[in-house]
Structure formats: structure tokens, C-alpha cells
Design a protein around this nucleic acid. Structure first.
Lengths: 120, 120
DNA sequence: CCATGAACACGCTGTTCATCG
DNA sequence: CGATGAACAGCGTGTTCATGG
């Protein structure tokens, strides 16, 4: 997320990772549950994540050691095995969120500038 | 820019068109001048447009009849011919800006929501 | 059908190449 | 070299396909 000369707006996956880390600190959810929770937050802004992006984001956060994955039996009649994601490295998680803030503030400022330039 | 079920953030070219229309209403600039002017506005937000995106945006706005192109001799010793872009259809230009506002407000709200979700 | 994951395809955008004055 | 434009290439992301419970 760093050392880029010029970039437009934040990439979808970078923001998804912010939600995944934030939610993983509080709950023990599996893949599609993250998808549903994020959808609940952002649906009214016209955005709904795909399962593909959720899984890719989770996988990348595991590859760099931020999250870890454990198998769990899903509650209910089906007894299906699901993958629960938890924080593995709290320091990495917090560092990511700190860097994400810089990027989000930048994008928020850019859009605010455009809105001011166009409609004031 | 319309009738999409789910989208993340606005595309770069859609925002560039907003600047091009806004600037074309006030000045008579050629391609690379638009690039420089937009760079001046957004450079401090880490964004600098490429000449390629500027030209593609201008061409698309001409294709749909929003802008028109006229040849002009460039001032100075070189006397090079440049392409000046002007508003062709004021109604289309205003409609575009109106639709753009909806999209910009949506994106601004989405980022604000994420910032609130993460850092409050 | 639900959950996970991988493979594939398309669209956006930056880099490079090509002309012309 | 400045300006315009087109062609090309990489990457982000949505859709589809595959496997297992």
C-alpha cells in the first residue's frame, strides 16, 4: 500500500482487508459471513463484495501472517466444516490499519476536493 | 455512469471528465494543458493524470457530442497546431455533471463510512 | 444447497510506440 | 522537443467452473 508515485483511488481489496481485520478482532467468522457483514455495512452505498474478492483478501492476509485460519464445525443440522479467520499477528494488523488510514484520508480528501471544485 | 448493480469507487476517467467539462466551460485549453491544470488541483492528493487518460477522456466526450475540437495555432515561436476543446452541447455537459454528483456523493459517503467504521 | 477455492475473461489504465509540426 | 494519438501490456476484479460437505 505504500511507495507509489501516483495513484487514483484505493483499491477495493485494500479496503476489504480493513473490514476483515477490524471484524476478525471482534468476532470469529468464516468467509461467507465476512461477505455478508461487509455487505450489510456498505450495501446502501451501492457496493456489495463478491465471494471471490473476500477469499482473495483473506488469503493474502494469511500469506503475510496477519490472519490465521482454523477449521470449525458449522452449527446446525448440516455440520459442515468452515474456515474461521482470526488475528495471527496483532502488530501487523495494527500496522495495516494505520497505513490504511493514511490512504483512506487521502482518497477522502481527493473526492472532497473534486466535489468542491465542481459544485461550489 | 448509470444503472450498475454494484460498484466500488468511481473510475478515474469519469472524474477526469468532470474536470474537463468544468474547465472547458471557462477556458480554451488544449490537451496537455488540461493535464497540467488537473495535476495542479490534485497533485497534493497523490494523483497525477497521464496524457493517455486525458486524451481518451476528451475523445469520449467528443464522441457523445459533449465537447468539440477546433484547431488553433499555438502561441510562441514554434507556431505548432494544437487541439482546443470546447463545450459542444451545454445540456449534455450539465447532465453529466449532475449525474457525476450522485456518484461522487456515493463514493464520498462510502469512504466516510469506512473511516468511521475503522477509526472511531 | 452452502462453503471454499481456483481458473478464466474482461475492463481500466499506465507505458510505449508512432506521426506531425 | 511538444503535442496528439494509437497500440500494447499488466493488473484488478467479476464470472464461471470445480470440489467437498
Amino acid at each position: 500500500m505504500s511507495e507509489h508515485k501516483s495513484r487514483f483511488l484505493i483499491k477495493q481489496r485494500a479496503l476489504l482487508k480493513g473490514y476483515l481485520i477490524t471484524m476478525a478482532k471482534q468476532n470469529k467468522l468464516y468467509g461467507l459471513q465476512y461477505k455478508e457483514e461487509i455487505k450489510k455495512e456498505l450495501d446502501r452505498y451501492g457496493y456489495k463484495p463478491t465471494h471471490s474478492e473476500i477469499y482473495k483478501s483473506l488469503h493474502e492476509l494469511m500469506e503475510d501472517g496477519t490472519l490465521k485460519q482454523i477449521k470449525r464445525k458449522k452449527e446446525g443440522a448440516k455440520l459442515q466444516t468452515v474456515m474461521i479467520y482470526l488475528i495471527e499477528d496483532k502488530g501487523k494488523a495494527e500496522l495495516y490499519m494505520k497505513q490504511l488510514k493514511v490512504e483512506l484520508d487521502r482518497c477522502y480528501g481527493l473526492l472532497g476536493k473534486a466535489i468542491a471544485d465542481f459544485y461550489s
